[in-house]
Simulated assay, not measured.
Amino acid sequence: MIRHVLHAWRSVRPAEVLAFVTAALLFGAIDLASLLELRVGDQLPQVLARHLLVPLVSCIVLLLCWLPAARSSPIHPARRQRLVAATLIGSVLTIAVVYPLAAALPWPSLCDIYAATHGKPKCMNFRLSAVIGDTLWVFMPALMIVGVLEFRAVRRRQDQAAQDLLREHSQLRRHALGSRLAALQAQVDPALLFDALVAVEQAYGRQDATASARLERLIRHLRVALPRLRDAGATLGGEAELIASYLDLLRDLNGTPPAFDCELGSHGATQLPPMLLLPLVQRALRLGHPQHCWLKVGGGITLGFDQEGLCSDDADLASLRERLAVLGAKLVCSSGAGRTEFILDIPS
Rank of each mutant, 00 (worst) to 15 (best):
R157S: 09
E168Y: 06
G147D: 05
D134W: 07
G147W: 10
E168L: 06
L136R: 03
V154T: 08
D134V: 13
R157H: 13
A153I: 00
R155H: 08
N125V: 11
V146H: 10
R152D: 03
A161F: 01
M140G: 12
S129E: 13
E150R: 11
A162T: 09
M144Q: 12
V131Q: 00
Q163V: 04
A153V: 02
C123D: 02
F151W: 09
M124G: 05
V138D: 03
L166N: 10
V154S: 07
Q158F: 03
F126D: 00
W137S: 15
D164V: 10
V131L: 04
F139I: 00
N125L: 06
F126L: 08
Q158L: 06
L166W: 06
I132R: 05
P141F: 01
F126Q: 02
R127M: 09
Q160Y: 07
E150A: 11
L143A: 12
Q158D: 03
V154N: 03
A142N: 02
V131R: 00
V138G: 02
A161P: 02
L149W: 12
Q160H: 06
S129M: 11
C123L: 03
E150C: 08
T135Q: 00
A161N: 09
A161E: 08
Q163S: 11
R167D: 09
I145M: 05
G147S: 13
L128Y: 13
F126Y: 11
G147R: 08
A142Q: 03
L143K: 06
T135V: 03
E168A: 14
F151V: 02
R152T: 12
C123K: 02
V154A: 10
A161L: 05
W137L: 15
M124Q: 09
T135K: 00
N125R: 09
A161K: 07
V148H: 07
L149V: 12
R167W: 10
D159Y: 13
R156G: 10
L136C: 08
T135P: 00
A162E: 08
V131P: 00
I132N: 07
V131E: 00
V148N: 07
Q158T: 09
T135M: 03
L128W: 15
V146G: 08
F126P: 02
F139Y: 05
F139D: 01
D134N: 15
Q160C: 04
S129A: 14
V131F: 02
A153C: 01
R156F: 03
L128S: 14
W137A: 15
I145W: 00
R156Y: 07
L165N: 08
A162V: 07
D134F: 11
R155Q: 05
D164W: 08
M140N: 12
L128G: 15
G147Q: 04
A161H: 11
E150F: 07
M124L: 15
Q158N: 03
A142M: 01
E168S: 10
A130M: 13
V146E: 12
R156S: 10
N125D: 13
L165W: 06
D159P: 03
E168C: 04
A130L: 14
L149N: 04
D164A: 12
Q158W: 02
R156Q: 14
L128I: 15
L143S: 12
I132F: 15
R127L: 08
R127Q: 11
A142E: 02
D164F: 04
D159S: 14
V154K: 02
L165R: 06
I145V: 13
V148T: 12
